[in-house]
């Protein structure tokens, strides 16, 4: 039993390691890191906000962008305000 288990587990382990490497990078919240970036987080600053939305206009999840939960909430609020005033799109094709 133990041998069988070893064989299976070694194969699975290798796959898991690869997956883990793909997802875990050195991600830090850029707004926590610098005070200037935090100040520039505003609904008028569309250049910054554009970096946090996908091609389809969706808000990037924090596991991709690396933001902390506090700043992710703030960021999503700002993006939604910018959408309401037509500075950012809701979706790519409105016509």
């Amino acid at each position: 039993m133990s041998r069988l288990k070893l064989k299976v587990s070694s194969r699975l382990l290798r796959k898991k390691k690869v997956r883990k490497k793909a997802f875990t990078g050195s991600k830090t919240c850029r707004f926590c890191a610098s005070r200037e970036q935090e100040r520039s987080l505003d609904y008028k600053n569309t250049n910054l906000l554009k970096g946090f939305i996908t091609e389809r206009g969706k808000i990037l999840p924090s596991r991709v962008s690396g933001n902390c939960s506090f700043h992710q909430r703030e960021l999503s609020r700002e993006i939604k305000v910018a959408r309401a005033i037509a500075l950012l799109p809701f979706c790519p094709l409105h016509r």
Binding site: R39, S40, D42, K44, N45, T46, N47, A84, A86, L88
Partner: peptide, 22 residues
């Protein structure tokens, strides 16, 4: 057509970045 009212922090400076037209 649309408008947004927002409260600002009194301590923060009034500088801001104008967005580029899409």
């Amino acid at each position: 057509m649309r408008y947004v009212n927002r409260r600002l922090d009194a301590n923060v400076s009034l500088e801001y970045q104008k967005p580029e037209p899409l």
